[in-house]
Design a protein around this nucleic acid. Sequence first.
DNA 1: CCCACTTTGTGCGTGCTTTCACAAGCACGT
DNA 2: ACGTGCTTGTGAAAGCACGCACAAAGTGGG
Lengths: 231, 231
Amino acid sequence: MISRPPRPRERGIPEATVARLPVYLRALQSLQDRGTLTVSSEDLASAAGVNSAKLRKDLSHLGSYGTRGVGYEVQYLVYQISRELGLTQDWAVAIVGIGNLGRALANYGGFGTRGFRIAALLDADPEMVGQSVASLDVRHIDNLEDVVRSKGVSIGVITTPAASAQGVATRFVEAGVSSILNFAPVVLNVPDGVDVRKVDLSIELQILAFHAQRRADGDGRAAERAGLELT
Amino acid sequence: MISRPPRPRERGIPEATVARLPVYLRALQSLQDRGTLTVSSEDLASAAGVNSAKLRKDLSHLGSYGTRGVGYEVQYLVYQISRELGLTQDWAVAIVGIGNLGRALANYGGFGTRGFRIAALLDADPEMVGQSVASLDVRHIDNLEDVVRSKGVSIGVITTPAASAQGVATRFVEAGVSSILNFAPVVLNVPDGVDVRKVDLSIELQILAFHAQRRADGDGRAAERAGLELT
DNA sequence: CCCACTTTGTGCGTGCTTTCACAAGCACGT
DNA sequence: ACGTGCTTGTGAAAGCACGCACAAAGTGGG
């Protein structure tokens, strides 16, 4: 007799799967807009740009929401993924650093429809404070703690210069924000339990450059050698 | 006797390593600015926010550039990583979609110093064409092929609305651009051999929301149960 | 010249991710 | 009621990535 059941109904969705759920969700919403009622794993996978086996395994982590011989019901799957991602509730977001990028994010409409609400804009520059961006007044960074508390901010976005980013992150954490999206090109130091995600434009370009160079090298060598193995 | 040697001097750097090299590079440049001459894997790893064993293994893929008992020479390592990433040459970048985000990227100074040069800005809106952004004239999208050829553009950045992104990608590819950085929230369809990287703000927020919700659920349950196992 | 100390480079075990391939399950027509 | 055809859900295998722990290799002091 096995005393411990194999898994005590574990809620552990693999990280790689979590990163793909938003992609599936978007593909599904697009299908929904077109009035599609059901979709097969094959079709949804190709819309999301992944392998169909991977898609099925990913969805299987949420439960068995498909019907064999038919596929998945679009509307139901949209709801299940949204719920799993926590989009059925409303997340208040604060953006610190109202430069070009901060303004771009503030004006980006795609958030509201997906459970995110820009609740506050903050900046250190007195010139900026009081200006209205995307129907919100820019407030001074010294109000960060107040704003987090009064608006119930739970996600902080950092679009400041690199030099200020760590300070802002620390203040976010101390004010109780434990989810941070960082656009500044620095590695943030935060205590355990705080979740930081980094978006770094110049890193993406560098990765592209690496592959481009490798392709060019390969092509060059291949041309020289009149192309033997092209693995 | 084994007829085939284990590895024919393979140039295969793992993808995960490539993604971290830019982070190391930035940390090293920061050390260089401070006048540091050598650095240990331990120190560099902590500056880059990774495990020191991982850092050493990553660097070992480039060759043996460290000295046991001493560490790595900063300047030399900067050069080796830059060369490996292809930053010793100059990459011409074209940005299509001069909205808030496109402008933010065009004005972002961090590229020039790292081998990237914004060579052209394009937009479909006649109102936008002719305006000057970041010392460059915005040109109409119909000039894409000309611009790619005359400026030698090898990296395309897409910051258009979702609906236009696929069309722009296709035109980039047909014009000979095989590295694309896509900010539009769609999955791009491109032929083999074309490298697309995606940056998606709302996906990052959704991943943060997932973890935040999971933390909240866990805390809630833990509080109810007076906290047993806190794995 | 040798010894103690430091730090790199890497073999190896472990766990996560992807992919294949197929049994299980459902719908529909006869 | 039953077979046919399609699609899901999932073992099992292969491939990657991570991190420990240690031998190898260098430095510097006596």
